[in-house]
Write a protein that binds this DNA or RNA. Structure first.
Length: 577
RNA sequence: CGGGGCGUAGCGCAGGUGGAAGCGCGCCUGCCUUGGGAGCAGGAGGCCGGAGGUUCAAGUCCUCUCGCCCCGACCA
């Protein structure tokens, strides 16, 4: 146990906001001496930060153990060969922290452990009788993020709980999946976070069903749509568009090419030609495994790239660069369109395009657009799909009521992987009938270190952090106002000992500094309950206060344990959202 | 990877046109003070991110480099 006297605690708090902190959680965690940056996205956890991390760690571990997941520990260093068997050495590529050993062999610091754990099970599990099995670990992960930011929220080295389950049938996978889901909700509730569970897009991890556990926060990077009427909740990337598109009965006019000098964007075109954006067909050029693809959508709408990737079953899909577009089509960006595009280009269109009559599209040469382009007559579509990015106000796909939108921080993500990894790695077992079958797998991640930031985003005020009791570094801080007053010092020590004996985690602020600094530090660090030993010490009385409340209660020092327990029982900090 | 910004004391920052490295906070010593970041006096602390160049002279100008931060990497 670390020293519980502030005078001896390694907790160098900062009065000023660090220059690189953009959000409250980052600022307060640094100022409050929970963390210190070493380099971009890499942090020291100071004693206070480690205490908070440990508490979250413990909650996550307890919930995993409770559903029969077995804790193990996998290596951080992983050989390239393993990643090459699944193709992820290249697919996941740039995000990995790669290095070579002295013999020149390639390695990575593990960003995740599907390969390692599948390799393990492939070698150790031979029979359906050994299934199912679920293992997990809580360990450091390494991802060379495009842009580390927001302190612990997007770090390059971070702590993650990752669990993997192996099954011989889908029902068994579903059973574990549901248990995980419950366990994750328990974690959210035990910590005290406001959260949503949403249907998610499985992205680069792969698989066919997945849910995200999102802690609500305006600074979050996940966009969530939910329905107040029926309870639908999903990532905007996952939400299908449920509205109808009306047929237009307009008469088809002859195709016409018009000058649009330096007019490129939908905004500009609409303004220049005096047409509404609904009359414009936006053409976007992508490059995937099978070459270039043109995606069409109505001018006023946004395309959802995840949907496009899904429709084309191509995770490597990306938008073509302006150079690539010109090289492939001979047309500069801004003037590209479906009229007269080469037969080699696959055209996939959102349903919104189907009924547009007399549309405006790119003129297929610099500074030109076509007016009155019509489907069938002037351009073709190879394939129709729902590619529309659904937004707040669009109809709920389940009940049709208008959707609401919010933002959050992704803390947990669970996936039904199926046989994606086991097939790639030939990880098989023998079933009842003597057939070799690939494992059916699930994987389940939780961002342990990121959770710290998510909590601070929900629990703070303008003075600092307000920890929920569940993960506070200490439950109580005993503040001795004037260390030079013998009765205060002695009573403070006594109160401290009493609380400690009662099993309460207490920090004694016995520093020889002015009371203002002690109060401000206590607020900044965010300890839930403050016991102040000051003027009333001579009468054997102390003051008790909750971090989030202005109310101060004077109690007999003799009854401090009782009073603190009562305060802890009724402790209920407000959430900022 | 593209654009922008910043690297000067532990932290936050100032240092036109080149000419003796500064301020606030923090830190150390002493006195004094103690219910919301006290006061006085004294003091320590710098290869001005690094390398090269221009110059009699560079924190300042030029070139390169490293690091950090922000925006973007998408609506053609």
């Amino acid at each position: 146990m670390i020293e519980l006297r502030f005078s001896e605690l390694f907790a160098p708090t900062l009065r000023e906001k660090p220059a690189d902190a953009e959000i409250k959680s980052h600022e307060y965690l640094v100022r409050g001496a929970f963390i210190r940056k070493v380099t971009a996205g890499v942090f020291n956890y100071l004693p206070l930060g480690k205490r908070v991390l440990d508490k979250i760690w413990k909650i996550v571990k307890e919930e995993m153990d409770a559903i029969g997941a077995q804790e193990m520990l996998m290596p951080i260093i992983q050989p390239a060969e393993l990643w090459k068997t699944t193709g992820r050495w290249d697919d996941y590529g740039p995000t990995m922290m790669k290095f070579k050993d002295r013999h020149g062999r390639d390695f990575t610091l593990g960003p995740t452990h599907e390969e390692v754990v599948t390799f393990l099970m492939k070698n150790e599990i031979n029979s359906y009788k050994q299934l199912p099995v679920t293992v997990y670990q809580i360990a450091n992960k390494y991802r060379d993020e495009l842009r580390p930011r927001f302190g612990l929220l997007r770090a390059r080295e971070f702590v993650m709980k990752d669990a993997y389950s192996f099954h011989s049938d889908w029902n068994s996978l579903d059973e574990v999946y549901q248990k995980m889901r419950k366990a994750y909700e328990n974690i959210m509730k035990r910590i005290g976070l406001k959260y949503l569970v949403i249907e998610a897009s499985s992205g680069a991890i792969g698989g066919n069903e997945s849910h995200e556990f999102v802690s609500l926060a305006p600074i979050g990077e996940s966009n969530v749509l939910y329905c107040e009427k029926c309870g639908y909740q999903a990532s905007d990337e996952k939400t299908p568009y449920a509205g109808k598109y009306e047929e237009q009965s307009e008469e088809e006019l002859p195709l016409e090419k018009v000058d649009t000098p330096n007019v490129k964007t939908v905004e500009q075109v609409a303004k220049f030609l005096g047409v509404s954006k609904e009359k414009i067909v936006k053409s976007l050029v992508y490059i995937g495994r099978e070459g270039i693809v043109m995606a069409l959508i109505r001018g006023d709408l946004d395309l959802n790239e995840e949907k496009l990737k899904e429709v084309l079953s191509d995770q490597s899909l990306r938008m073509a660069t302006p150079e690539e577009v010109e090289e492939e089509t001979g047309v500069p960006i801004g003037f590209i369109g479906p009229v007269g595009i080469g037969e080699n280009v696959r055209i996939i269109a959102d349903e919104s395009v189907r009924h547009i009559k007399n549309a405006v599209v790119g003129g297929m040469e610099k500074d030109k657009h076509y007016k009155n382009a019509n489907l069938g007559r002037d351009f073709r579509v190879n394939e129709w799909a729902d590619l529309r990015l659904v937004k707040e106000g669009d109809p709920c796909p389940v009940c049709g009521a208008p959707l609401k939108g919010t933002k959050g921080i992704e803390l947990g993500h669970i996936f039904k992987l199926g046989t994606k990894y086991s097939e790639a790695m030939k990880a098989t077992y023998m079933d009842e009938n003597g057939n070799m079958k690939p494992f059916i797998m699930g994987c389940y991640g939780w961002g342990v270190s990121r959770t710290i930031s998510a909590v601070v985003e929900q629990y703070h005020d303008d003075k600092g952090i307000i920890w929920p009791l569940s993960i506070a570094p200490f439950h109580v801080i005993v503040t001795i106002v004037n260390m030079n007053k013998k009765e205060q010092k002695e009573l403070g020590e006594k109160v401290y000992e009493d609380l400690k004996s009662a099993g309460i985690e207490v920090l004694l602020d016995d520093r020889m500094i002015t009371p203002g600094m002690k109060f401000n530090d206590a607020d900044l660090i965010g300890i839930p309950i403050r016991v102040t030993v000051g003027k009333t010490a001579a009468e054997g009385k102390v003051e008790i206060k909750k971090r989030y409340s202005k109310e101060r209660k004077v109690v007999e020092a003799e009854r401090i344990v009782e009073a603190v327990k009562e305060a802890m029982d009724s402790y209920d900090p407000p959430v900022v959202l």
